[in-house]
Each structure stands twice: as C-alpha cells, then as structure tokens.
Design a protein around this nucleic acid. Structure first.
Length: 317
DNA sequence: AAGACGAAAGTGGTTGA
DNA sequence: TCAACAACTTTCGTCTT
C-alpha cells in the first residue's frame, strides 16, 4: 500500500491525541493520524497529477485537462473543430480528405444562428471589457447576464450591442467596479440613454436587484486619473462616510457626490485640483460639484476651509 | 486670464394620479 | 397618458486670485 505523507503546509493536529503526524492515504482517500489511527477525513479527492513529467513534451502528451471553461466564450471554451485550419486535413491519406472536408463544411453550416450571434456578441463584450480595463471576472459575469437575456428572448426588438452593453453595465455594478453609462456608451458607440433603458429592462425581466451605486466605488479610480495620493483617497472616503451619515448622498448622482468629495479632500490635503479637472474625470459638470460642495460644507465643518474669512480680511485691508 | 460662484432656463427620466 | 418633480446640464455674467 502506498502511503504518502504530505508534511508541507499541513499544520493540522489530530483532535484526539494532539499529534501532528497525520498521513494522507490516497489509495483509500483518508486522512489518518499516525499515532492513534483516528480517521480525520474520508473520501478525500487527490488533486495531484498521477504522472510525472520529465520534459515539457511529456507534459503536453500526458496532460488531459484543458483550459477552464468560460462563459465568455460562445462554446464556453470547449470546442472541437474538425480539421482546424486546413493543414490537419492534408495530413490524412488522400482517400479520406474529401470526407473530412465535407464534415468540416457541415459543422460550419449546422452552427445555429443563435450560436453565431453569441459568438459575435461575446467578441463585442471582450472589446468593451478590454477597453475599459475590466477584470475577467466582470466579463464572465456580463457574459452570464447576456446568456440569460438571450435565453429569455429579451434581445428581440433591440440591438444586440445595446444588450451586451447593458449586461456589462449590470455586471460592473454587481461587482462594485462601476463604470458610468457614459464610459460604456463611449466604447460601445451607443447613446447612453439606450443603454440605460435596456439596463432597466434587463434588470426587471431578469429579476436583478438594482441597488444605487456607492460613490465610494468610483473614488479610487477617479483619484488615480487625477494623480491624487492615497492620503487624499482615504480622506475622501472619510468625508463620504460622514456625508452618508448626514443623508447628504441619497438621491444624488453617485458620480457627482464622488467628485465633490474628492474635490474637497484634494483641497484639504493641498493637492489642489480645479473643479473643471475633477468634473471632467467624473463626467459631471462644475455646477454639480459646486452644488454638492455647498451642501457638504454647509453641514460639515472643515476647519481648513473655514480659515478663508481671515484671508479675505487681509485682502480687504 | 483662469478659476470659482451662482442664477436661470433647459433636458431626460421617474413617479403618481 | 399626462403633469409634477428632482437632479443635472448648459449658458452666461460676475467676482476672486
């Protein structure tokens, strides 16, 4: 019987005799205490590979698992294509070639319209996510939303691109990595009100809860676009927290709140940014920043900002 | 001259009758 | 379906630095 003892990283102790000498018996799938013989785990699955590789060629020959499946691929990443390219087919004996050429042709023909559509849609999605610097997790989530939309025939009557864009917008919000409608509208080349409309439609039809976005989710990204320091980010989040407690953020556009909070924080830390600069990256106007700014400073006391009257006196003099 | 401020009018979307 | 409404934008004149 082959007993394999894995000592590395396993700091588990036997609850019965407190011994550290545990043993994995892979032929039985059990974790056993060497001292008292207690079985601590049963039906373990051995995830290690049972073959060894001596060079990279070996690895390729013996490996049986492929890439992980992905919803962001039209075939989920699992596909068999007859005669990839053409070279494979010409490796066959001449007699067999026509047969495989025919099979190849038919494989292309039977791929249904929805499959082709999905392929195209997911290619679009890929383009959006890479242009917006979104992580693969968000792309996956968006792909799932899109698949659900297709399954429910929600694409009918609206452009495929707008549904893809709306799926992405949904996924972004669920992931706490929101992009503004403007940003998505930009890469997708679709008016933002259409994306918004489709988004609401999808959310309702698919029963996706739509929580308003948290301004905090925007802050780090805006800050980095403005070259603001981590101190300013921390400060912004503090201010935002207080603002939330004072109910100054509800009902307001989250980007506007984020922008105003950043603007104030930047002033406090001496990394001055103009309203224009902040407004530009946040996709709001200076007026909105001013309005939020006014509301915030009215209810919150910023010592540093209140010193202004002194300066005014000095200039009058 | 550039930035900040504020008033006024306009826009797109939501809500409630 | 329509009107009321809040948030936001656009535009513009004025003030401050």
């Amino acid at each position: 019987m082959a007993l394999v003892v894995h000592s590395s990283g396993d700091t588990k102790k036997c609850p019965k005799c407190n011994s550290e000498s545990l043993m994995k018996d892979f032929t039985r799938g059990e974790l056993v205490c060497k001292k008292c013989g207690a079985v601590l785990e049963e039906n373990m699955i051995d995830f290690s590979q049972e073959w060894r590789e001596f060079d990279s060629g070996d690895a390729n020959k013996r490996r049986r698992a492929g890439a992980p499946i992905s919803l962001a691929r039209h075939d989920k990443g699992i596909s068999t294509e007859i005669g990839m390219g053409f070279s494979d087919i010409f490796k066959l004996p001449p007699k067999l070639r026509p047969k495989f050429l025919r099979l190849k042709k038919w494989q292309q023909r039977i791929s249904t319209a929805t499959e082709r559509n999905l392929k195209y849609a997911l290619a679009e999605l890929k383009r959006y996510t890479s242009q917006l610097n979104l992580p693969p997790g968000v792309e996956e989530a968006a792909a799932l939303v899109y698949r659900r939309a297709v399954a429910k025939e929600l694409v009918r009557g609206r452009s495929m691109e707008s549904v893809v864009a709306a799926s992405l917008y949904t996924a972004c919000r669920e992931h706490g990595t929101p992009r503004t409608l403007d940003e998505i509208a930009d890469v997708a080349n679709i008016p933002k009100r259409e994306i918004g409309r489709t988004f609401r439609f999808l959310a309702r039809q698919l029963g996706i809860r739509i929580l308003p976005t948290d301004p905090a989710d925007y802050i780090p990204r805006f800050a980095s676009q403005l070259n603001l320091s981590g101190i300013t980010v921390t400060k912004s989040l503090e201010i935002l927290k207080k603002a939330k407690e004072l109910e100054l953020s509800s009902g307001r556009g989250p980007t506007g709140v984020a922008a105003a909070v950043l603007y104030i924080a930047a002033q406090l830390t001496g990394e001055k940014k103009t309203q224009r600069e902040v407004a530009d990256v946040a996709g709001v106007t200076e007026v909105t920043i001013r309005n939020r700014y006014k509301e915030l400073t009215k209810q919150m006391r910023f010592k540093e900002l209140e010193e202004k009257p002194v300066i005014i006196e000095a200039t009058i003099k």
